[in-house]
Structures are given as C-alpha cells and as structure tokens.
C-alpha cells in the first residue's frame, strides 16, 4: 500500500552550499539521498512531496559541516503481511512465479498456486488449468495476498499466494 507520511532526517551540508540558496541545496540533496531508498520500517521512499520544517543547523566540531534536522512529506510504498494487492507477473518457472507491484518483488511458490493449475514449459512458460481457461504467464495481471515479507538493508521481498477466494488472474495478456 502507498502511504503519505512525514519523515525526519538529519542532513549534513558542506559550507560551500551556504548562502541564499541554502534551502534549495538542502532540499536537492535530500531528494538525491532518500528518493529510491528502502528501509524495513518505512518501505520504499517513492517521492518527496513537500518540506514541513527545517530546524536550526548545528555546526559539527572540527569539520565545518552543519547538520540540519529536516522534516519532509513523502510517498512511500510499504507492503504488509495479509495485504491483498494486484501485481504484474515478471517471470514464470517450475518453482512458481515472480510478480512486481511497484518497486516490490513478490514470489508465489507453486505450492501456493491452486492445485488444479499445472506448469507448462517452453519459450513462454506458463501455469494453466486443465481446460486451459486460465493462464498465468509473463505480463499477466494477478491479484495476490502477501503472506510473508523479508526485509534486508536495501530491499523488501515478499512471498505471496493466489490459493484463496477471489485471488488469481485478473487479466490475461493473450486474450486482452
């Protein structure tokens, strides 16, 4: 899910950036530093939308660098266990398939794909039901439920399932 939240960060600025453009320089550095990053607690920082407040700067002993506490509003994407969302299939193999929902990767193991769906290998591998009415392949859109998240320093990775009511393919690129 996407959220609009306020985060705080201490920004260190070199004295050469001081002057009338200090604020612009600080904001430009903030965008460069945090947009596109990911933390386990807040998820992916997609875009900064505004600056709430820039606190008083504090000169660091010995270096001349100044630290400013900056409060900023941003759009973040944070997946949760138990959340249901839509995703695009990016890769299919006999172990299951990978899907992407915005910046996050989700793996759906073949144990979490309904039992009546079988893997078919080939140039364009896919999962299908015996009557061929439903097909999961690259670029299919699926609705899935996140059942686990793994967080490391710079990425969040999710495990999903489509083995539940109202989950599964919502749009097949072949028939669309």
């Amino acid at each position: 899910m996407f959220f609009h939240i306020v985060l705080e960060r201490n920004m260190q600025l070199h004295p050469r950036h001081f002057g009338r453009n200090l604020r612009e320089n600080l904001v430009a550095k903030l965008m460069k530093d945090v947009e596109g990053t990911c933390s386990g607690q807040h998820g992916f920082v997609v875009a900064i939308t505004g600056i709430e407040n820039i606190g008083k700067g504090l000169i660091r002993d010995g270096t001349g660098f100044v630290t400013f506490p900056v409060k900023y509003q941003c759009v973040v994407f944070r997946p949760f266990k138990g959340e249901i969302l839509e995703a695009v299939v990016t890769m299919v193999n006999k172990m299951g398939f990978f899907a992407e929902a915005g910046p996050v990767q989700i793996f759906v193991s073949n144990h979490l794909i309904p039992d009546d769906m079988e893997f078919q290998s080939g140039d364009m591998p896919y999962y299908t039901t015996s009557d061929g009415s439903v097909k999961i392949q690259k670029d299919s859109e699926v609705r899935l439920k996140i059942i686990g998240t793994r967080v490391d320093a710079t990425e969040i990775f999710c495990i999903g399932t489509i083995k539940d009511d109202f989950l599964g393919v919502i749009n097949d690129p072949a028939t669309a």
Binding site: F2, E35, G36, F44, V46, A47, F77, E100, A101, G102
Partner: peptide, 15 residues
C-alpha cells in the same frame, strides 16, 4: 528519477 519512482509510476498507471 529513481528506479523506484519509475516502477511505481508504471504500476499505479496500470492499476
């Protein structure tokens, strides 16, 4: 823009 931004934009446009 970052990769996160671009992927998010594509995703929300699609869905």
């Amino acid at each position: 823009v970052s990769q996160v931004f671009e992927k998010s934009l594509q995703y929300v446009k699609r869905f």
